[in-house]
Design a protein around this nucleic acid. Structure first.
Lengths: 202, 202
DNA sequence: CTTGTAAGTGAGTGAATACTAACTTACGCT
DNA sequence: AGCGTAAGTTAGTATTCACTCACTTACAAG
């Protein structure tokens, strides 16, 4: 009786519903029934599109990876100076988390950390690639003299990644009582000031 | 047939088992059966000591809170200079996470974030108190001239808390392939150098 | 209009879930 | 020694979980 959709569309719909519900219900508590109810099909229909729940999670990882990488590339392409690129990378990441608040919880889920090794590797690779972009951009800044060299760029990249994750935790624990991107970028400027302040001092 | 224990001891044993298993199995997937099997009693016996699972979680929060606060107070008491106190606070927190690796996952669990509001408030209060200690210590450093005042102490505290959380995430995603406390303290020295480098520059 | 395919259904599976009730027995106290 | 208490058990409950299977039917191509 219900309207049918081509498999591609339905798969995307299922993945989208999972990401939406993972925030409300939690990645490890989310059931196939929750997803089915959300999009108005039966639970059994989920398994026509994904053989197991673990494979559904891998499809989710694929979608997330594509979204994040696209956001990073756009940030890198649109900003002119290395400093603007760095800010744009951080802003993009904050926006992605704000748009898809389940992301931090998925990083800590046991679906990822204990039961689905392929999923963990996918996300770890993503995080490493983000830090790589950050480190490269920081190297560009150092080459342009916009920043000191007292801190090695991979360390600076880790500090900035941590900043994003830390503000995301506060955001989530505090029931999202502030604007994630605004507060994150404010702290980014503070940290950038610290990094830039080291010019010629190391 | 099995050896009996006074309720106090058994409660502590249950809480300890939960914390151990929450790391391996995940906070949201951990069942009362898992706990019972771990300590060699039947699942029903759990409910002689805790009326519901949610109350068991609250007892866990209480134990964690006491451990963390004791570690902080000891760090504050044992270190002489404000700078040493700051380092000791960070070291203590890193050690607590290394000793009880379930802590970050619990922070992101849905037991905490969605289903057990009392649990969330308990942990949020803990985190705020940690940042308070950090900020106070940073103020002491500023008063002693050991640090610049370009960065407001609450912001610096957030940056340091984020550092701990960020390195903890990398540690866990990377299958704990490095020593958390060592790497965390190394990054702390980097960040401290940045903060201290601003002396007189603000 | 017919027809093949694939999207979706309905009804089920066994295993787990948190939690309960009625019982048994180990242990401390006198 | 014996007795009361409380820590533990066995055997359940209703519900939910991921997943299966036989089936129906919407839709697009010829």
């Amino acid at each position: 009786m219900p309207s049918r959709k081509p498999a591609e569309d339905r798969k995307a719909e299922i993945v989208g519903a999972l990401l939406r519900l993972a925030d409300r219900i939690g990645p490890d508590r989310l059931t196939t029934n929750d997803i089915a109810r959300e999009i108005g099909i039966t639970q059994a229909a989920i398994f026509r599109h994904f053989p197991t729940k673990a494979e559904l999670w891998l499809a989710v990882a694929e979608v997330v990876a594509q979204r994040l990488e696209a956001a990073w590339l756009q940030a890198l392409a649109e900003a002119a100076t290395p400093q603007d690129r760095l800010r744009a990378l951080i802003a993009a990441q904050l926006l992605q988390i704000e748009t898809c608040p389940a992301l931090p919880a998925i990083l800590h889920s046991r679906e990822l950390n204990a039961e689905n090794a392929a999923l963990r590797d996918r996300f770890r690779g993503l995080l490493l690639r983000f830090q790589g972009h950050l480190a490269d951009t920081i190297d560009d800044m150092a080459a342009a003299g916009a920043i000191g060299s007292a801190v090695r760029s991979p360390d600076a990249a880790v500090l900035l990644t941590s900043l994003v994750q830390g503000v995301a935790i506060r955001w989530s624990l505090g029931s999202r009582g502030f604007a994630l991107q605004t507060e994150g970028l404010r702290l980014f400027e503070v940290q950038l000031g610290l990094l830039a302040g080291k010019v010629g001092a190391g």
